[in-house]
């Protein structure tokens, strides 16, 4: 596959990709390491929580989302990482057995003035479950290499 540079990304581009089912064991294993709150790791305690059963750590949902992006969207030959994300929202709990996929749209792009061989891509990202409910969304900011130094 040809490397996807800054110039190749167009405002309005959309994509939908990935399929990741989160097992109960995976949810508990991640949360034991990074987010050991009772409603993520303790099935008994989770029953009496507002969620009624264990739910995935939001960081786990974000991490599996990143994996789907790396596998399907981010060109690792051109990607220069990200300075951050905005408006991250966990809209609905992710429960054991849920299957997630990602939907993205390119909102804007800006070539760097100080380093014209790179640019920033601004996107809107949604994570959707098997019932087509949005479980998480955020605005993404990705830095990427340009093919040339010349503005299009």
């Amino acid at each position: 596959m040809a490397t996807r540079y800054f110039e190749d990304v167009k405002i309005g581009d959309t994509a939908e990709f990935g399929s990741k089912t989160l097992s109960r064991e995976e949810i508990i294993a991640f949360a034991k390491k990074y987010d050991p709150q009772p409603f993520h790791i303790d099935e008994e305690a989770a029953k009496s929580s507002i969620y009624g059963d264990i739910i995935a750590s939001g960081w786990h949902t974000a991490a599996v989302t990143m994996r789907m992006m790396v596998d399907n969207m981010i060109d690792t030959k051109a990607s220069l990482g990200s300075p951050g994300v905005d408006n991250l929202r966990w809209h609905k709990p992710v429960r054991p057995g849920d299957t997630l996929r990602v939907r993205t749209e390119v909102i804007d792009k800006k070539r760097s003035r100080s380093r014209p061989n790179m640019g920033t891509i601004f996107g809107k990202l949604e994570v959707i479950n098997q019932q087509d409910e949005v479980v998480m969304s955020f605005n993404s900011i990705g830095m990427t290499l340009a093919r040339t130094n010349k503005p299009e």
Binding site: P36, Q37, F39, S49, I50, Y51, I55, G58, G81, S82, P83, G84, V85, D86, N87, L88, R89, W90
Partner: peptide
């Protein structure tokens, strides 16, 4: 850890 936390609706301005 020892709190009445019920989770989080989200994060604004996450910056690395």
């Amino acid at each position: 850890g020892n709190s009445a936390s019920m989770g989080s609706p989200g994060i604004d301005e996450l910056r690395w």
